[in-house]
Structures are given as structure tokens and as C-alpha cells.
Simulated assay, not measured.
Amino acid sequence: MKSLFKATLLATTMAMALNTPLVSAATTSAEQGAAAKADKSAAKFKDDDQQAAYALGASLGRYMDNSLKEQEKLGIKLDKAQLIAGVQDAFADKSKLSDQEIEETLKGFETRVKTAAQAKMEKDAKENEDKGTAYRTAFAKEKGVKTTKSGLMYLVEKAGSGEAPKDTDTVVVNYKGTLIDGTEFDNSYTRGEPLSFRLDGVIPGWTEGLKHIKKGGKIKLVIPPDLAYGKTGVPGIPANSTLVFDVELLDIKPAPKNDDKAADAKADNASAAASK
């Protein structure tokens, strides 16, 4: 039983190193639960406990198979037959390794996975940086594109009317966000709900970029990594990603006067500190 626990620990370790959820297989199994229950008679399980045991084994097996495929992406190829043999031997209490050997082996494996994952992240980050630079260089040559001192690039498609938003204003927008290869990671249009936020509460590329249009305006923003999510990235957006946003500014809601005064005081204090 201890060995079975070690196998589960291995799965958890692999999931943590790869930042993949252990429940993914169980979730898939749950989604198929209704169909499995309807087909219970065809499966010929003796009772609910027998079916539950099989489901647990199938869920664990599916998860481990997916994990092995993730290891291969890191250049680590584990022997599936040996994994199955380890599980069988654990149930038969005939493990070829002592508890200490299992623990030491798993610690070594965890180190290997983390090292390989880190190397892959660094490689991917460098590739993203190079591809982003090339994309921005090409975009800069398009008609109407402007580049600010910060490196932000934008193309005003519709100027809008009225005043441009200030940092303390709340803006309401519709937008689509993609990576440079066209992969979409966010879209308020498909959600059917615009996004509302204070302008200085988002990534720097948005805070700066939306000031170039007014209410009713539309703009394309090409944001370099240091004005977006930088070297770390976030789920769905890899490290060092250049981001492309198509944004429509629907409304601008000025901040209460007290907020404006507080922001001005904060800016004055920062300026005074910098001059000392």
C-alpha cells in the first residue's frame, strides 16, 4: 500500500513540476460519467464498488498516460511497461525497490523534471522574444502604425470623440486578445460582456494605449513583453509574449474628484522624492 502511495506521489510530483492539474483526468471521467452510468449493464460490473474501483483505475491510468506524454516533451521518456509493472508489484507486495530506494528515485526524478522544465521554459521564452521582435519590426512598417517611447505600438482605426481617458477613469471596452501566431487567449465579444476597469489597474500597454483614442474609438495595440506579462507570463500567455489586442472603447466614466486629487498628490510625492 505504501508503494501505491508512492506511485500517487509520483503523479503529483509530475503534475507540480509541469503545472498540470491532477484532477484533469478525473474531470474528464466526470464529464463521461453520465454515459458510463447509462452503459453500466453493458460493462457488466457486479456492483457499484466494482465499477468505482474500475473508474478509479481508469482515471489514474488516463492521467498517468497523459503525464508520460508531457515528460516526452521535456526529453524524458519513461517506460510505460515498467510503470504498470510497478503498480502490479505494489499490489502484490513484491516491489523490486525498497521504500528508501523508491523515495530516493522519486527525488532524483523530481529534480530531473524540474531541470528539464526550466530549460524548456527558458528556450521557449527566448524563442518568443525573438519571434515577438520580428513581428513588431514588421508591424511597425504598416501604414498608420505609431511607436511610443516605451515601445508600445498602435494603430488607431477610429479616433472616437470627446476626451481621452485618464489613469483614474473607469473605461468600458470590448476587445480581442491574441498571441502573434493568432492564438486567441481572451475575447469579450464571444463572452457577450464588455469589460469595465480603472485604466491604471491593468497592464502598462493598456494603460498607455487606450489614451490614444476617445469614446467610440477603436485601436489595435501590439504590446511588447515588458509592457504586458514579461518574463513570467500567465496561464494561456507564455513568457516573453508579444500581445495583440483589438480594442473598442465603449465608455469612459470619470473618477470621483477625491480620487483625482489623491492620484495627483501621489504623483506629486513621487516627483518630489525623485528630485531629492
Rank of each mutant, 00 (worst) to 15 (best):
L78N: 14
E127M: 07
P256M: 04
A34M: 13
K211W: 01
L221T: 03
D47G: 05
K96D: 11
P194D: 06
E101I: 00
Q88F: 07
N187E: 01
G236Q: 10
A58V: 04
D93R: 09
I203R: 08
K80M: 10
D259P: 00
K176G: 13
P165I: 02
D246Q: 14
G132R: 02
N269W: 02
F5A: 11
K96F: 04
K215P: 04
T190A: 12
N174R: 07
S150L: 04
A34P: 04
K231H: 14
T148V: 04
K80W: 09
Q32C: 05
L250M: 12
P225K: 08
D264V: 05
M16I: 03
G108N: 13
Q32F: 07
E208D: 14
D39G: 03
K214E: 05
A263L: 11
K166W: 04
L22K: 03
L179A: 12
Q82Y: 01
A138Y: 03
V87W: 08
L249D: 06
Q82S: 11
I84W: 02
P224G: 02
K218R: 11
E103Q: 10
K2W: 10
K141G: 13
A267W: 04
D47H: 09
I76P: 06
A30Q: 13
L18A: 11
F139N: 04
S161E: 14
K94C: 04
E208W: 02
K261R: 11
H212K: 14
I213S: 01
S241K: 07
S188A: 08
R198I: 06
E157S: 06
I180A: 08
